[in-house]
Simulated assay, not measured.
Amino acid sequence: MVTICAALGLTAGVGSASVSAAPASSPPTARPVAARPAPPPVLVDCFGHAKVRPARFILACGDGNSRLVSLHWRSWGARSARATGVNVVNDCVPYCAAGHFHRYSVVVKLDRPQPWKKRPHVQHYSRITLFYPKDRPAHSGRVVTFSLWN
């Protein structure tokens, strides 16, 4: 019995040695991983939602007395975005609740992308510049720049 067990043990050892001595199959060919381009920055609205090429955007979150409408985006890239549209502004005369809204043609530029605090892996535009090619709101320059919320 001892001889049979020893013979079986020797056979098992030789069998496993022959298996481990077999040439290993070659590893699969490594394929280069294509780097995905980073998504373009977003525009964060008053409600903390990410927008890309929005048709409308509220500038005065507290009361809605200044907003952009009819936006047509000419570009939306990694460094800046440009659009034409209309800035609808309340004149607040004699006070905002009794004021009237006026429409002004505007060219919009977004730039200075930075990480968004809500989602640090997402870039958001942190500055907006409005160019008024014709009429403009009272007490407003031809070019107005604002920091955007994060």
Results as ranks from 00 to 15, higher is better:
residue 29 T to K: 07
residue 114 Q to R: 14
residue 86 V to G: 04
residue 60 A to W: 11
residue 77 G to H: 01
residue 40 P to N: 06
residue 71 L to A: 02
residue 136 R to S: 00
residue 146 F to M: 13
residue 129 T to E: 13
residue 118 K to W: 13
residue 10 L to D: 11
residue 108 V to S: 01
residue 24 A to P: 12
residue 146 F to I: 10
residue 138 A to P: 02
residue 82 R to H: 11
residue 77 G to E: 00
residue 7 A to N: 05
residue 73 W to A: 08
residue 126 S to H: 01
residue 62 G to Q: 11
residue 22 A to V: 08
residue 10 L to P: 01
residue 47 F to N: 09
residue 14 V to G: 10
residue 34 A to R: 08
residue 88 V to Q: 05
residue 126 S to D: 02
residue 23 P to M: 06
residue 114 Q to D: 12
residue 52 V to D: 00
residue 96 C to N: 04
residue 57 F to Y: 10
residue 129 T to I: 09
residue 49 H to R: 03
residue 122 V to R: 15
residue 71 L to F: 05
residue 70 S to D: 09
residue 38 A to I: 11
residue 68 L to S: 02
residue 8 L to R: 04
residue 1 M to S: 13
residue 129 T to G: 09
residue 110 L to C: 02
residue 48 G to I: 01
residue 139 H to C: 11
residue 31 R to E: 08
residue 3 T to G: 14
residue 17 A to C: 13
residue 105 S to Y: 10
residue 19 V to P: 05
residue 110 L to V: 02
residue 37 P to V: 05
residue 27 P to V: 01
residue 117 K to Q: 14
residue 40 P to A: 05
residue 119 R to V: 10
residue 78 A to E: 05
residue 86 V to K: 09
residue 89 V to Y: 12
residue 58 I to D: 15
residue 50 A to L: 10
residue 53 R to S: 05
residue 28 P to H: 02
residue 34 A to G: 09
residue 113 P to F: 00
residue 148 L to Q: 00
residue 123 Q to F: 06
residue 74 R to G: 14
residue 77 G to S: 04
residue 81 A to S: 08
residue 5 C to L: 12
residue 7 A to H: 03
residue 50 A to H: 07
residue 38 A to S: 11
residue 107 V to W: 04
residue 1 M to P: 14
residue 66 S to T: 13
residue 93 V to E: 15
residue 104 Y to F: 13
residue 104 Y to N: 00
residue 114 Q to S: 14
residue 87 N to D: 14
residue 111 D to W: 08
residue 36 R to M: 09
residue 25 S to Y: 07
residue 77 G to I: 00
residue 114 Q to H: 10
residue 132 Y to A: 06
residue 22 A to I: 07
residue 45 D to E: 02
residue 13 G to W: 15
residue 42 V to T: 03
residue 6 A to T: 10
residue 42 V to I: 04
residue 66 S to R: 15
residue 16 S to D: 05
residue 75 S to A: 13
residue 36 R to E: 03
residue 131 F to N: 08
residue 11 T to R: 14
residue 31 R to W: 03
residue 27 P to H: 01
residue 85 G to I: 06
residue 118 K to C: 08
residue 123 Q to N: 10
residue 82 R to A: 04
residue 7 A to Y: 02
residue 99 G to D: 03
residue 2 V to W: 06
residue 56 R to C: 07
residue 104 Y to W: 06
residue 14 V to N: 10
residue 98 A to L: 14
residue 81 A to P: 11
residue 64 G to M: 05
residue 15 G to C: 12
residue 122 V to Y: 10
residue 31 R to M: 07
residue 20 S to Q: 15
residue 48 G to K: 03
residue 90 N to L: 03
residue 123 Q to G: 05
residue 123 Q to H: 12
residue 125 Y to V: 03
residue 74 R to P: 04
residue 4 I to E: 03
residue 126 S to K: 01
residue 147 S to A: 15
residue 120 P to Q: 08
residue 59 L to H: 10
residue 17 A to W: 15
residue 63 D to I: 08
residue 94 P to K: 15
